[in-house]
């Protein structure tokens, strides 16, 4: 009883105290005091918002503006290797020179088109496979006994915490000509000549599904875990078969989880570099790899920037969709 009464009591005392202060200090002084306090509180709030805001503006938003700027410059053999967009003539006239040549180059050279389309295709197909593999796992974890759930979740998260690079590397040993799969198949006499699996598109699909699977499972699990099981009971009571109940109740209700997981896989996979570089062949064109080569091998910063801007434009719709979904999930929670 006493613990419950305490807050209300103190609150009352506090109120009387503050009115007492107001009465004693007189109207003017009290107003000034309150104004000052409010001002300080406002200042504190502003700086709390301001610190991460400024960091993100400086290191996330402004860099994109610079990429856009350099994508409109020309390549130059200099340090840094691009021309300036504006310069002053006789300190009076500002001369601005925008060069759309890099974008024209992207459109004209079929290499870039092929790479963009191929990246989208590889990312989309991998996302579908991630969903097909990840959904039953997420569903199984969400329906497991509560004490087992934590263990199973940890098993999903554990590979995600181990080095991405090393997990991709592991597949080289498995897929290569004298790798584990081929050794096993040859020993069993199933094949005579080793299968070519490394440096193919197949290896890239496999690598993406493998590396991004936890990103699909976790949001799906978070969604399926919250599913109201009484809905399924109601469906069963009304004579609905479990498989039908799954497709008409569970699946539609888990759409936000499916969307979140798919975006978390699809968007980074489109720009993936490590997996096609390690597992893909020379003809596996993906845009992340093209951007990397344009930058590191050709040292063509303006074209690399144009490739990045075009990639960003391609991903704007999925990214906005992802953020909308996240924001709605956050709203629903609070």
């Amino acid at each position: 009883m006493s613990t419950r009464g305490a807050p209300a009591l103190t609150k009352g005392v506090n109120r009387t105290a503050s009115t007492a202060v107001k009465r004693i200090s007189g109207f003017g002084l009290g107003a000034v005091w309150h104004g000052l306090r409010r001002r300080f509180r406002g200042l504190g709030r502003a700086s709390v918002i301001g610190i991460p805001y400024l960091w993100l503006l400086a290191f996330f938003l402004i860099p994109f503006v610079i990429v856009l700027k350099i994508s409109l410059a020309e390549t130059e053999i200099a340090q840094p290797p691009y021309t300036s967009l504006w310069y002053w003539i006789e300190h009076k006239y500002l001369n601005i020179r925008l060069n759309l040549g890099n974008y024209q180059y992207l459109i004209q050279d079929s290499l870039y088109w092929t790479a963009y389309l191929n990246s989208v295709k590889i990312a989309a197909v991998s996302t579908v496979f991630c969903l097909l593999v990840g959904y039953p796992i997420a569903y199984g974890i969400a329906r497991a006994r509560p004490d087992r759930r934590i263990l199973l979740l940890m098993l999903v998260i554990l590979p995600f915490w181990t080095s991405f690079l090393i997990r991709v590397y592991a597949w080289i040993g498995i897929l290569k000509t004298n790798g584990l799969i081929n050794n096993a198949l040859m020993a069993l006499g199933i094949v005579d000549t080793p299968l070519v699996m490394m440096q193919t598109d197949f290896a890239v699909y496999l690598g993406i599904v493998y590396s991004y699977l936890p990103f699909m499972i976790l949001p799906l699990y978070a969604n399926l875990e919250k599913l109201d099981l009484t809905l399924l009971e109601a469906a069963a009571d009304l004579g609905c078969r479990p498989s039908k109940a799954f497709f008409r109740v569970t699946l539609p209700l888990s759409m936000p989880g499916i969307l979140a997981g798919s975006m978390l896989v699809f968007i980074p996979a489109v720009g993936e570099f490590v997996i096609p570089a390690l597992l893909g062949g020379p003809d596996t064109l993906m845009i992340g790899r093209i951007l990397w080569d344009e930058f590191f091998a050709n040292r063509d910063w303006p074209v690399a920037s144009a490739v990045a801007i075009a990639l960003l434009l391609l991903l704007v719709i999925p990214i906005v969709l992802f953020q909308y979904n996240q924001a709605r999930a956050a709203e629903a929670k609070s």
Partner: peptide
């Protein structure tokens, strides 16, 4: 603000890397 906080989660690494270098 929320956009800038959420976007790095999905932003392809090559874009983030290039843009930060140019910055």
């Amino acid at each position: 603000f929320t956009g800038m906080v959420m976007a790095p989660l999905v932003m392809p690494e090559v874009i983030t890397g290039l843009s930060l270098l140019l910055l």
